[in-house]
């Protein structure tokens, strides 16, 4: 028998393996493939003595294996190196910018769930009706809309045209929660609507599937109304496939946030990433990529744990 602790341990080992492999890939692409990261940073025509100095400063004169071990070792203690353009530890830079990107992604995820799941369930309960048809047609359009374009259109209408919300920039959380949320509202909406459309479709088919099960009939036999049977019995079962998709979406939202930050000139991780690319600040790019990949892998891990919570059948199962 597999029990919950054993399952969690197995997943944890998988998580650690994936992270280590990911760190290796990132290191290989950004520190080994370019040949000489110092030369990349300084560009063509750099003076040999400047190059040598930078190489020594970056520790590039050491063998590749040593560099990998020391860099990976640093990751464990939160040492991602020092940005060459900012002269600040990469982790500090990223954490400062994450104060914008993370709330943005979470707001978007929350919005997608609160719009998508109830509308999907509603469409399922009215299957074949006018409301179902209209909602699903809207969802079909919604999943085809690129969130960065939706962001542009929303800012054109609600910021430039109607002037209800800021068109860009971020006042910083120290200016207060409300101005911060106002600045994040349109970007979050632009991210949430397409993902909400995906969730609505998934929720609809999952609820339809669940509504066909006999336990819904059992619930109604007990005297529950159709709505109560849907809410208390069909929905908890339907949440299992919804959670799968939501896990994939969270990873997507994290990178989606990077794109939409660009539309609204938000000082998030995305802007940092593009500045770093433009300035060939490889150590910063490397740090950001590793952190985002770690976030994605951890989200998937949490989703796996959510399954265990949502579906008791997975908790104990023949080996």
């Amino acid at each position: 028998m597999n029990t919950t602790p054993a399952l969690v341990l197995r997943r944890l080992i998988g998580l650690a393996t994936t992270l280590l492999l990911a760190a290796f890939v990132v290191f290989a692409v950004l520190s080994v493939l370019p040949g000489d990261p110092a030369a990349v940073m300084l560009g063509v025509g750099a003076r040999p003595d400047t190059l040598a100095a930078l190489r020594a400063e970056m520790g590039l004169d050491r063998p590749v294996a040593v560099r990998f071990v020391s860099w990976t070792g640093g990751l464990f203690v939160g040492d991602f190196g020092v940005s060459h353009t900012y002269g600040v530890p990469v982790l500090d830079l990223v954490l400062e910018r994450a104060a914008v990107s993370l709330p943005l992604a979470l707001l978007a995820a929350g919005g997608a769930v609160f719009v998508g799941v109830p509308l999907g369930a509603l469409a399922a309960s009215q299957r074949g009706g006018v409301l179902d048809t209209v909602l699903m047609a809207l969802a079909q359009v919604g999943i085809a809309v690129p969130s960065f374009w939706l962001a542009i259109m929303l800012s054109l209408v609600f910021a430039v045209g109607l002037d209800w919300l800021p068109a860009g920039g971020f006042p910083g959380w120290e200016a207060g929660v409300w101005p911060g949320l106002r600045a994040l509202f349109l970007p979050a909406l632009a991210l949430a609507l397409p993902q909400g459309a995906v969730l609505a479709r998934v929720a609809r088919s999952a609820v339809l599937e669940a509504l066909h099960q006999d336990y819904v009939l059992t619930a109604r036999m007990k005297g529950l109304s159709k709505g109560a049977a849907l809410w208390r019995h069909a929905l908890p079962n339907a949440l299992i496939p919804v959670a799968t998709v939501l896990g994939l979406q969270l990873a997507f939202l994290l990178t989606g946030a990077i794109v939409v930050e660009n539309v609204f000139y938000l000082p998030g991780v995305g802007r940092l990433l593009f500045q770093a690319i433009a300035q060939r600040d490889l150590i910063t790019v490397q740090g950001i990529v590793v952190l985002v990949v770690t976030a994605v892998v951890c989200i998937n891990f949490v989703v796996d744990l959510t399954y265990l919570w949502l579906d008791p059948r997975l908790r104990t199962r023949g080996a």
């Binding site: 990178t255 994605v296 998937n300």
Partner: peptide
């Protein structure tokens, strides 16, 4: 399956950013 887990951990945007940083966009 391990490799596919690994590849799924790299959203297209990150891969593109890494390659762009190394070889240019």
């Amino acid at each position: 399956m391990r490799l596919s887990d690994l590849a799924l951990a790299f959203p297209a945007l990150l891969t593109a950013a890494m390659i762009a940083a190394t070889y240019g966009p």
